[in-house]
Amino acid sequence: MSHSFKALQISESPEKQYTRSIIERNISDLPANEVLIKVTYSSLNYKDALSSVGNKGVTKQYPHTPGIDASGIVEASESPDFQVGDEVIVTSYDLGMNTSGGLAEYISVPAKWIVKLPKGLSLKEAMIHGTAGLTAGLCINALLNHGLSPAQGKVLVTGSTGGVGTLAVAMLAKLGFEVVAVTGKPEAEVFLKEIGASEIVSREVVNDQSGRPLLKSTYAGVIDTVGGNILATALKSLVYGGSAAICGLVASTELHTTVLPFILRGNTLFGIDSAECPMPLRANIWQKLANEWKPNDLSILAKEITLEEVPAQLDLMLQGKALGKTIVKL
């Protein structure tokens, strides 16, 4: 198959400068994989922003098309698991990192990366979730499997205006939890209350500098997207038998704490990875995202933009000024 399509391309100059442009590519230029998908929607993630400025921990070779998320329709398939016309989702693995990504009208991927769109979700709603929703779902799944319930108390969500945080707040609220949302953006309070947060606290409130190994037992559960001292503070604030799920490092990769929350309060810390999440678990979480965990109004969680608007939105993400999810209509 050979015809052209639009894609965002990041190019690297000899001086290590990175430029973004919308170009025409040919399907024959895509990697030779089992399934060709015509992309309907993508969504923006922090990894896409990092790829767009030359972060070699995300993308090693340029020119490159980022986009770690895509939903769309199978256009051609060499796999018996997928037929032409199937509606599908592709998130994480190597999509948009070193494999040409979803910020384009077509992607070519291995069949083992693909999830069939579950009933209860549209292609647009799938990208309002995207990797962020999958990650938030994996966090919630870990906490629920550990026994967390609304009767046990409040759940703290850090980085609550980001993609994972926004969806975690909305899904926890749907499940009946009292959600405490952490943000450094006072202007986001109305939005966070609208999506289900019961209480809003500033970053300073959960950034303890006292050096004490334990703080007042406050939260039954924590979903942390930032790491660093805010995570350390949250761990010191868990109730007896409480649990935390960590999935991010926006503030820091370091964690300075003691063993006391774990050996005196019986707390548990779960590490969450969505990039290489096994397919059976991945498919199970997508089913929950489409059904019992689906917020009543997903549309308020995201804004929709065109491919041409993506470069400016990536800048906002890098500046920490993005709010909620951004989906891209292809």
Rank of each mutant, 00 (worst) to 15 (best):
A275N: 12
R212A: 14
W286Y: 03
S92E: 14
T158D: 04
W113D: 10
G266K: 04
V164D: 06
I223V: 14
V155E: 05
I10G: 15
K116Q: 09
Q152M: 12
P186N: 11
N145R: 10
C139T: 10
K112P: 06
K216F: 02
E24D: 14
Q152N: 05
K6M: 11
N267P: 04
A32D: 15
G242C: 03
Y18S: 05
I272K: 09
S237Y: 15
S274P: 01
Q9S: 14
K38V: 09
G176A: 08
N98I: 09
I73C: 04
A322Q: 07
A244R: 04
L172D: 09
T233C: 07
I223H: 03
L167D: 11
E125Q: 10
E194I: 01
S79P: 04
L103P: 05
V205D: 03
N267H: 10
I114P: 04
A322H: 05
A142M: 07
V205N: 00
N55K: 14
N55Y: 13
E308L: 03
E254N: 13
A312Y: 10
I230K: 07
Y18N: 12
T306N: 12
P80G: 15
S198L: 03
V58G: 01
H129I: 00
G133Y: 01
R282S: 04
V74A: 05
S2C: 10
M127W: 08
S160G: 03
G228H: 08
T99N: 05
A181T: 01
T225Y: 02
R25G: 12
M317N: 08
A275Y: 12
S52Y: 11
S149W: 05
L8S: 14
L301E: 13
S274V: 03
Y18V: 07
S42P: 07
L30P: 09
L214W: 00
A104W: 11
T233D: 09
E125L: 03
K236I: 09
S160F: 05
T326E: 07
S252W: 04
M279Q: 13
V205Y: 05
A142Q: 09
K154E: 14
L148Y: 03
Q319V: 02
L281W: 02
P186A: 08
L314F: 11
K216G: 01
K16I: 00
S21Y: 04
Y93C: 11
K116P: 10
L235Q: 13
V180Q: 01
D29T: 13
K16P: 02
I140A: 02
